[in-house]
Design a protein around this nucleic acid. Structure first.
Lengths: 144, 144
DNA sequence: AGACATACTACGAAGTTCGTAATATTCAAT
DNA sequence: ATTGAATATTACGAACTTCGTAGTATGTCT
């Protein structure tokens, strides 16, 4: 692994700052659409991916206090996005599952995210598209 | 300008999700360090880039209500990160300038951001580094 | 059964956002 | 020079979010 030059890092920082703005805008739009805040959306995405997970799991993943997650769950339940229920196996915990309405919200968010990804790829010609994809994957798999 | 395939989009979405997490963590760390919230940090970055700017400029750029920006400026002034003063040219407005302490906070944030960029580039060999940089710049310049 | 750990909820304090209204200043006519 | 409208910000308060403390219910271990 060779050290990237400061100039390269600088250029990447500028470019990255610019194209991640697109994603922030997309996320903000998703927030507006369902009147959910950023935390609640992230929680919903996690619950969608981890059915029957409990509050502690989500709080740990999102690095917020347990009570904060409890409030978030309250809001999501109130909006019919998720359901709480006590599993017989361990009745101290709550199992969180997504509802149809919650799934739709997730789908909406994911669509927005994909649209941003698509817009990025469309800036490139086909050869560069596959090249960019390869490099991006390599970076995402490289765990320091 | 060819349509990317759904598979490509899907793969990019997954990879992108993963490597942007690094930036979120870096930003969260910056927030912790100075006990500033995300809005205040973004405001500080803008003020650093636009000395003598006024509240409206910042509010418009960050897409928040003017009153929200006023509160943010209160907090930044209270923490000695910026200074407000009334320019003689137009005494209705306030000119915002960064202080030494504010500059240090910006430098800390920028360092964190660059470190993330560097970590990304280090996942690639030198040839791919320049290639990735080229593609990233091309995307950031497209449709702006 | 008792002691302790686990998983969550209730409540309240502190902080953030933003709408409404008020203030100060500038500009443009009259 | 004065009035009126436009501009730029601040004061205030309502609604909401986060999180710490304390409490409840359940599980585990001896």
């Amino acid at each position: 692994m060779t050290e990237p030059t400061p100039e390269q890092i600088e250029k990447l920082a500028i470019a990255f700052e610019r194209f991640t703005r697109r994603f922030k805008v997309a996320e903000a739009a998703a927030v507006m659409q369902n009147a959910l805040n950023a935390l609640d959306i992230q929680a919903l995405l996690f619950i969608d991916d981890h059915p029957e997970c409990n509050l502690g799991d989500v709080a740990r993943h999102l690095q917020v206090a347990l009570t904060t997650m409890s409030s978030s769950a309250d809001r999501l339940v109130r909006r019919d996005m998720i359901e709480r229920h006590r599993p017989e196996a361990n009745r101290r915990s709550v199992a969180l599952t997504i509802t149809n309405k919650g799934s739709q919200a997730v789908a909406g968010y994911v669509d927005g995210y994909r649209a941003s990804c698509k817009a990025m790829l469309q800036a490139l010609d086909p050869v560069d598209q596959t090249e960019f994809l390869r490099l991006t994957q390599q970076i995402s798999e490289y765990d320091d």
